[in-house]
Amino acid sequence: MKASLLLALVCTAALAVGARANTPGEPEALVRKVQEFAQKATAMAKSTFSMVQESEAAQQARRWLEENADLAKQRLVWLKEKVEELWKRTPAA
């Protein structure tokens, strides 16, 4: 997302420079053009993120994480039990 934000800022700056060259005496037009560009860029980013979230690869990744999270929890419980057993066996100094 950081790269997308950087790209949007660079494009906004380029648009601002181009708009300023076309309308040197009209700052309102420049602001309006930048706002329109920002709105289009925001809509495109939202659309892209929605497509990525709904993709098959994203769904598979979520399933994999869910399955492996349960496995990781099971391993942590097992490890905790082993450490507790080891702690009980260790004589006090």
Rank of each mutant, 00 (worst) to 15 (best):
residue 6 L to V: 11
residue 17 V to D: 03
residue 33 K to P: 00
residue 68 N to F: 01
residue 57 A to Q: 13
residue 53 Q to G: 06
residue 14 A to L: 15
residue 18 G to H: 04
residue 66 E to R: 13
residue 52 V to L: 14
residue 68 N to D: 01
residue 85 E to W: 01
residue 30 L to T: 13
residue 11 C to W: 09
residue 85 E to K: 11
residue 86 L to D: 14
residue 50 S to L: 13
residue 2 K to Q: 12
residue 49 F to A: 12
residue 34 V to K: 04
residue 29 A to N: 07
residue 52 V to K: 13
residue 18 G to L: 14
residue 89 R to E: 10
residue 41 A to H: 02
residue 52 V to R: 14
residue 80 K to H: 10
residue 81 E to V: 01
residue 42 T to Y: 07
residue 93 A to G: 10
residue 90 T to F: 11
residue 73 K to I: 00
residue 6 L to A: 14
residue 30 L to H: 07
residue 60 Q to C: 04
residue 62 R to H: 10
residue 19 A to F: 00
residue 67 E to H: 01
residue 25 G to C: 05
residue 68 N to M: 01
residue 18 G to F: 05
residue 91 P to V: 12
residue 92 A to V: 12
residue 66 E to M: 11
residue 10 V to N: 09
residue 65 L to N: 01
residue 5 L to S: 05
residue 47 S to T: 07
residue 77 V to G: 01
residue 32 R to Y: 14
residue 54 E to W: 05
residue 23 T to G: 07
residue 62 R to V: 13
residue 76 L to Q: 03
residue 74 Q to M: 03
residue 56 E to H: 06
residue 34 V to T: 12
residue 1 M to I: 07
residue 84 E to W: 09
residue 77 V to I: 11
residue 64 W to E: 04
residue 43 A to D: 10
residue 75 R to Q: 14
residue 3 A to F: 03
residue 34 V to Q: 02
residue 46 K to Y: 04
residue 91 P to K: 12
residue 16 A to F: 01
residue 93 A to V: 07
residue 49 F to L: 14
residue 75 R to F: 06
residue 54 E to A: 15
residue 1 M to R: 02
residue 59 Q to L: 13
residue 62 R to M: 08
residue 82 K to P: 01
residue 93 A to I: 05
residue 79 L to E: 07
residue 1 M to G: 10
residue 70 D to V: 08
residue 85 E to T: 10
residue 60 Q to L: 08
residue 50 S to W: 10
residue 17 V to A: 14
residue 45 A to K: 08
residue 24 P to E: 02
residue 15 L to D: 04
residue 47 S to N: 12
residue 1 M to Y: 08
residue 36 E to V: 11
residue 91 P to M: 07
residue 61 A to P: 00
residue 79 L to A: 13
residue 25 G to D: 12
residue 73 K to C: 00
residue 50 S to C: 02
residue 78 W to F: 07
residue 45 A to H: 07
residue 58 A to I: 03
residue 36 E to A: 14
residue 92 A to S: 08
residue 42 T to M: 09
residue 80 K to Q: 13
residue 27 P to G: 05
residue 16 A to R: 02
residue 8 A to I: 06
residue 59 Q to N: 08
residue 21 A to T: 08
residue 60 Q to G: 04
residue 82 K to G: 02
residue 91 P to I: 09
residue 29 A to E: 13
residue 77 V to K: 11
residue 22 N to R: 15
residue 55 S to A: 08
residue 7 L to K: 15
residue 59 Q to D: 09
residue 76 L to K: 10
residue 54 E to Q: 15
residue 8 A to K: 06
residue 49 F to V: 14
residue 56 E to S: 11
residue 48 T to W: 02
residue 82 K to N: 07
residue 3 A to V: 05
residue 61 A to L: 12
residue 35 Q to W: 04
residue 76 L to F: 00
residue 79 L to I: 02
residue 88 K to I: 10
residue 73 K to Q: 02
residue 88 K to W: 11
residue 62 R to W: 11
residue 24 P to Q: 01
residue 83 V to S: 05
residue 40 K to F: 06
